[in-house]
Design a protein around this nucleic acid. Structure first.
Lengths: 325, 325
DNA sequence: AGGTTCTGCCAAAAGGATTTGGCATACCCC
DNA sequence: GGGGTATGCCAAATCCTTTTGGCAGAACCT
């Protein structure tokens, strides 16, 4: 028993040949260590929690950027699984009910707000947390995976400028999520550097589409309207497209539109909207990897930044002559 | 110890007053039974698996009806959690890797095909399975939650007819999923009863939008084109809308469109498309409830059918004068 | 008082993996 | 052969809950 246990867990002193033999026989017999017994002994459960920023009371027909989160969740499940870990999807209600007894080793919190109850919930139980996007409420915490918000913002702005935009408006959600804040300050410095007007419109996150529609409408009715709109949140995209249509602007003829996060709304917009693919799959994989390394006291790079890819679509003139990724 | 255990698990003979006292003290102390020890003893893990019909190689920009599945997954997590169970999201890759040792009590498989490897995987381990939508490959299995495909199809067809449609085409996915098949036969009997032409176009599930576009295009170019299209799969919606636009048909003026499953594409279509809300949340709750009842040998109604709600939108003329649900 | 019922308490076992320290064997080298 | 090293084996303890059968005291009834 000792030898087999050591062989399977890479502990103790076991002859490499014996290790191989054990592995072979174990495979042949289909033996699997009992998770409960293992958990009981080790205190580890082999389960990671995933907490998405979805509100309980979100109306079904509210246009959240859901496909982003499903891609992320699916990839996280795969990444966890490939390391023999289970991924538990926790419902938004968890912050009210508390995670009673539920055996968890750690959690991944997506898009944390400062003092996010989801983070406190896990941290309060002494569970390690990795966030996807930075938690501005804990500036010293380095356990996060994030997009390069500033780099990404510049990429979008440069692209819009290259396509002829001179007056780029920023439609940014009123939220304390890290990437929104960082995008805002990147925009700030970009317009200052390029000596172009600063046109910032904060928009309420709820109800999203409608508030974006009204904001864009007002923007386009100005005496000197913008010739491009950088729409930071996915859920604003459709409202902006509707506003452009209502204002009689041709896209991309008279108005360029680009989104900070790719989504179904952007891909299937009318016209399709250029957007940043933040690669939620890669973010999820990196987060799982980081969390597990942390649990095992392995050394990992933290934080980790995942580069984005700008998906060029009709709303900014489509693919350039020189092919792109 | 015996008394506390009995009190907590509603077993044995314990004075009700003592039960209450135990509950109170347990609450005060914040005691939680160790899941591993419990699992080790009982053989139960307290975890349910959820297997969505998402393919590993699904391209990111392929328009799946993702929000349906995220709503479903989120609700399932909530329902499981309210009964002290964890919901594990299993990655699509699980069918290749097999669920090694992973402690699971049972699983929910969404949209099973006949001989679905996800079902065999769980069943092969002796784990009880509940499916969402019927598994046509196991006609004797009653452990499923489903929409009332036939009733729903008639509801859509009646609605289209009430809005003036006389030649209703059916765009149905080539798939062996239960609801698609049942919708097809419901359409069949409906057109026979109403003595209207039978216009069935099977469309390949992949790549979805494009195949639907081409199919709808061909349909509309016929000498006697349909005046309404019943689009069964969510992913076809946008292709059909594009085809209508390309063919110069006004929607709903010259062509009515209704979808068999509500989705972002339908809600945010151009124009928004009338669609059946299958209430994925309710389906998920019912499935979790059924699975747990089965595990506990409780009596439950099985199968269970969840009524759908037709969301009236512009594509069929919008809300009727008399308000609706 | 004797019998019965109710209820709390006790001790022990089971569930399966891991860890520990030490023992024992085999092998190698000088 | 003596000393050393490498490795397999062993027994016991631990992780924590649930279940079992029986014991013991309290309360009640006739």
């Amino acid at each position: 028993m000792t030898t087999v246990s050591h062989a399977l867990n890479d502990k103790g002193r076991v002859d490499p040949a014996t290790r191989a033999l054990v592995a072979q026989v174990v495979h042949q017999l289909g033996y699997r260590a009992n998770r409960h017994a293992q958990g009981l002994r080790s205190g580890r459960s082999g389960a990671l929690a995933l907490l998405l920023p979805i509100r309980t009371d979100a109306r079904a027909d509210e246009a959240l950027s859901l496909d982003f989160y499903l891609r992320l969740a699916s990839a996280a499940a795969g990444a966890a699984f490939s390391q023999e870990q289970a991924l538990m999807l926790l419902p938004p209600t968890i912050v009210q009910t508390g995670l009673h007894g539920l055996g968890l080793d750690g959690g991944i919190v997506v898009d944390p707000s400062p003092r996010d109850p989801r983070v406190s919930l896990l941290a309060g139980q002494g569970l390690p947390v990795v966030t996807i996007e930075r938690d501005l409420g804990r500036p010293d915490d380095l356990w996060f995976v994030a997009s390069e918000a500033a780099v990404n913002a510049r990429q979008v702005l440069d692209h819009l400028a290259a396509r002829g935009a001179r007056r780029i408006a920023l439609l940014v959600p009123r939220t304390d999520w890290g990437w929104a804040t960082e995008t805002l300050s990147a925009y700030d410095s970009w317009v200052r550097e390029h000596r172009v007007p600063r046109l910032i419109t904060p928009v309420a996150m709820e109800p999203g589409e409608e508030s974006a529609f009204l904001a864009a409408r007002r923007l386009l009715d100005r005496p000197r309207p913008p010739d491009a709109i950088f729409v930071v949140a996915a859920r604003f995209v459709r409202g902006v497209l509707r506003a452009a249509e209502a204002a009689g602007r041709r896209v991309p003829g008279q108005l360029l539109i680009a989104a900070g996060v790719d989504s179904l709304q952007a891909r299937e917009g009318h016209p399709p909207v250029t957007a940043l693919d933040l690669h939620p799959e890669r973010q999820a994989e990196a987060a799982v990897e980081m969390l597990l390394a942390r649990l095992n006291d392995d050394r990992v790079e933290a934080p980790r930044y995942i580069p984005a890819t700008l998906r060029l679509r009709t709303s900014t003139g489509g693919q350039p002559v020189t092919g792109s990724s």
